[in-house]
Amino acid sequence: MKDTDIKRLLYTHLLCIFSIILSIFIPSFFLENFSILETHLTWLCICSVFVTAVNLVLYLVVKPNASSKRSSLSYKVARFLKCCIYFLMSCFFFHVIFVLYGAIIFETLQLREIPPVIYIFVFYRVTSIWENSLQITTISSFIGTWLGAFPIPLDWERPWQVWPISCTLGATFGYVAGLVISPLWIYWNRKQLTYKNN
């Protein structure tokens, strides 16, 4: 059962990565002048919408916690509201951190809200494996954002060195890396985790 869970996790994560890759290529068929760097904001929106959609669909399909007794509508609504609150809170939290990190406030208002979407929409899952992978992806995308800030002062004069772009790119790379790492990590440590979770 454990291994099948991990496998499912791996497949969903691969789908997520695939959706991110798609979000790079598909919009160029519909939108003129689309490129990751120049229309960065658009790409970011599309990317997060893709990831969110994939996650929602997967949630409906995979149903990580298919406990039957808690499937009443009111419970679902309550869960949904709780998720919304979590989402807003985490937005606020990350926003505060990024503002304090020296972001220009107005730019932040437009752009900074979106990466947390990636982290937060996965809050549906409560089963421990999913949660572990969520933690790993969150941490790795945060580290990615942090690392993404480093090339900014360098004088290479590349278009992606402008302020939020390198950070959001770093976040996306970190997210992808987290998606790849987390099944592997869980696989390596599965004995320990069994002990911890149950």
Binding site: S128, E131, N132, N189, Q192, L193, N197
Partner: peptide, 9 residues
Amino acid sequence: KLLTMPRLC
């Protein structure tokens, strides 16, 4: 008691 979430390692 608030640390119900399993921590990583």
